[in-house]
Design a protein around this nucleic acid. Structure first.
Length: 204
DNA sequence: CGTTCGATGCACT
DNA sequence: GTGCATCGAACGT
């Protein structure tokens, strides 16, 4: 079942928590890829210094001020697309950054796309659990680009589904990573000890 | 184990 | 011109 718009029209922390275990599906010409969300971060409002809306409304962050249930995709570091799901409503700019997936469908296609990256030339293929590990990697593996910005997540090539996957008590809240400000907010939800979660792996 | 740094595009100032 | 919600290699310990 595709998640309805009302799923996204809620407090962003609730949406982030509930997105864990949901399945991102992308139907491209080359084939379909899909993966279950295992890591997501909330970016909430103009008072959150790490949220793109912190600088007020601009052309780039306009999707945050639009209706919920749409994709907010932007380019970072000149190389990596970032996939967000817009949440709340027109008066509350906020979104959830999808940071990692557990690959489910189309692994071969994901592997092919990952191998295409310049820095991967001549390297061994990416292990399955790393195919969608990290926000840039998952967009590359899924074929998500700036062309997907503002697309509804309720229909079209890019959708998010409830396939009945639950992680129950395995969800852990941490500080958000990869940002310089707002790291004090515990707004990063992950599946505990999942191999596809990005960031440094815990000591063992 | 840890930290540093280059690749690379574009919105923002 | 500056600085990123990154990735991964190349170093140093």
């Amino acid at each position: 079942m595709i998640l309805p718009v009302d799923f996204y029209r809620r407090p962003t922390l609730d949406v982030a928590r509930d997105l864990i275990g949901k399945v991102v599906v992308y139907k491209a010409k080359q084939g379909t890829t899909a993966g279950a969300i295992v890591e997501a971060e909330a970016y909430i409002g103009e008072d959150d210094p790490a949220c793109h809306a912190a600088v007020g409304r601009t052309e780039r962050n306009a999707p945050l001020y639009g209706p919920p249930g749409r994709a907010y995709v932007y380019l970072n570091y000149g190389l990596h697309s970032m996939l967000n799901a817009v949440t709340e409503d027109e008066h509350h700019p906020a979104a959830v950054l999808i940071r990692a997936l557990e690959p489910i469908d189309g692994l071969a296609l994901m592997r092919r796309r990952r191998s295409r990256a310049p820095w991967r030339k001549g390297k061994p293929p990416v292990p399955d659990h790393e195919l969608c590990r990290g926000p840039g990697n998952l967009c590359l593996a899924m074929g998500i680009t700036l062309a997907d910005n503002l697309r509804p997540l309720t229909r079209g090539p890019l959708t998010i589904h409830d396939r009945g996957i639950t992680h129950d008590d395995e969800i852990v809240w941490d500080g958000r990573i990869g940002i310089r400000v707002g790291t004090d907010k515990m707004w990063r939800a992950t599946v505990k000890a999942h191999p596809s979660v990005s960031g440094r792996k815990p000591k063992g």
